[in-house]
Nucleic acid binder design. Structure first.
Lengths: 345, 345
DNA sequence: CACAAGTGTACAATCGATTGCACCAATGTA
DNA sequence: TACATTGGTGCAATCGATTGTACACTTGTG
């Protein structure tokens, strides 16, 4: 059974000093109408009794919890954990505690987490949606409840909520152009689920780079998949076995890119000479492997910071007519050995 | 200004059905003394009004929040995020929401997070301490407040709290023995901060493996450091420049091991033929790099599950005379190319 | 000297849900 | 018929902190 927490309350402080709880509360909140003498007495007594402010009670009364909910598909990716880090920095600074939860890419878990967050009375929710999510009604519920919602990276267009993304189109375009400039003439694209904005945009960038460089592009060059490491490995292996020719790979994910590299290496195909390859996200392992993987940096930490700031603004302007905003950050191509040839073209 | 959240309360349901809030509360909690008819009416009305249980209010009244606080040094490591995953699984199952925060290896941040968690009235706290922590008084405070505290992996011995760890000594012993069996005669140990149990134990395992195999060991073979990737790189580079001979490396961290491998490769030293190498933690990248890194699997997810279960038990037995327990999991050596020689011995 | 303005606290309602106790009605029992 | 049981709800206090309003006392001003 839950035991009585013997924490002192403002009533205890009040009793000890022979004032009322209201005075204690005001003193603790540094209210201007309380005399300096009283304040100091209260503060002293509070620390003597080892008083701990009960956030729950205050939250209930005030109608705000100073909690910020964050839901990501998984924290087990450098991209997401860096974003979380950025969110934390800004949120903590502003007096918020951050509650992180994971959808594990499953719609059901995502919906359940929304319930938990709402029940916990968080002051706002930041989300990047999972791959498994196709129905967004659980997010609509957040909006209906008048709780600020900010999305990042993976963003369903249909939701009237502010969002922070990077220019995936541009990142993909640059990476693909780079491969073409390195002499690639037939580039394979490991693509992600098309219902997610980021993968659609990356594919568009890939396609447009071909168009604008006058390079032909067949649909068979585009291989959709889960973008997991093994998926990348298997897709490329299948291509090789089928004898399909190609001299470049642009993967929408670093993980799939690594899988692809392993498939190539297993057959003794030289990287980047025979096949040049680029990924997306700049996961730390991209600089550990050999050759280093060319990839696109997403400025994840900054993305988190920006997202949190937008939440703060939105929270302060709650009630104002709401105009969702979209912030687009600029990605950066990181060129490494996996694509850098000695004699381009 | 914070807007009035127009969420319906049990009072609204009560009014709509012309019963009292107490009845509604009981109906929602499926109290046996409420008639089936009433319950169903309440449930229907609740969903009609889109009622959301206010967790805060219930928590305040009940004295328990159904929140579980988890603090790790960083979520940006596969080990920790897997543990968190394990904790989540068990905790969610038991009706707890998990609140994750990071100390970023800094004592100050760690202490601040403890305050946040306590104020948020979490029902329990699970911690793995940061490298920067030398004073543990902020944890003592958790115990004083009668809040269940469970530690994992990095555990200060001085705290009277239950803990879940793996047998670091054994993992290190096995890894080192393996290197010796592969023919290594002078193994370098990249060691971690000695004030953390895990690094002390790993070093002991390293030492004992030498002792029990009758291999000499000089203190110069042990190189303490931060165990970051660059630290591993720099330590090994320095050794090489100094002309120190060695034919094996056991790193207490996979990251430092990768740094070491890069240093070796940069000088054209063959792995594992000239120098065999093993790390610790089985981070995902260990199987991506080449050669694959021999390492020690820590069963992180299971560790999280176990930790959460211990919290649950402890919570249920609050008030009982408290006997801290220590659970030790068994690690597993994963042998890969970085240490596997063609002709051992 | 009267009154306005400013200081410092107290009172009591409130946030939303929970729960011990009281109460009434219906049913069962002797 | 009188009384004990059981089922089904209502009443009101409670969790701990916050806050609008009221009130008493000073101080300042004309």
């Amino acid at each position: 059974m839950a035991q009585r927490k013997n924490s002192p309350t403002i009533h205890d402080i009040a009793k000890a000093l022979d004032v009322t709880p209201s005075t204690v509360s005001r003193a603790l909140n540094n209210h201007p109408r309380i005399s300096q003498t009283t304040k100091e007495a209260v503060w002293r007594m509070a620390s003597t009794l080892n008083y701990q402010h009960n956030h729950l009670a205050a939250a209930l009364r005030r109608g705000r919890s100073s909690l910020l909910g964050v839901m990501v598909p998984t924290i087990n990716r450098s991209f997401f954990s860096s974003v979380v880090r950025g969110i934390e920095e800004v949120a903590n600074e502003a007096g918020y505690a951050v509650m992180v939860c994971q959808s594990h890419e499953m719609q059901e878990q995502e919906a359940a987490n929304v319930q938990v967050l709402l029940r916990t009375q968080v002051d706002g929710i930041i989300v990047s949606v999972g791959k498994g999510t196709s129905d967004f009604s659980h997010f609509q519920q957040i909006i209906d409840r008048n709780t600020p919602l900010v999305l990042f990276d993976r963003v369903p267009e249909s939701l009237p909520a502010s969002a922070v993304v990077i220019d995936d189109y541009r990142g993909a375009y640059q990476a693909t152009r780079h491969l073409i400039e390195q002499g690639c003439r037939r580039v394979i694209h490991l693509a992600g689920p098309a219902h997610l904005n980021i993968y659609r945009d990356r594919q568009r960038g890939f396609e447009d780079a071909h168009r604008l460089h006058g390079l032909p592009l067949e649909t068979s060059q585009i291989l959709p998949g889960s973008l997991q490491q093994d998926a990348g490995h298997d897709s490329i292996t299948a291509l090789l076995e089928a004898g399909e020719p190609f001299d470049g790979i642009f993967s929408a994910s670093d993980y799939a890119a690594v899988g692809a590299m392993q498939a190539l290496k297993a057959r003794g195909i030289a990287i980047p000479e025979a096949v040049a390859i680029a990924g997306f996200s700049n996961e730390p392992f991209t600089s550990m492997i050999e050759p280093g993987l060319t990839t696109v940096e997403q400025h994840s930490r900054q993305m988190g910071q920006t997202t949190a700031r937008i939440f703060l603004e939105q929270f302060d302007h709650q009630g104002d007519p709401y105009v969702p905003r979209r912030t687009v950050l600029t990605p950066e191509l990181i060129v490494r050995g996996s694509s850098l040839r000695q004699n381009p073209r």
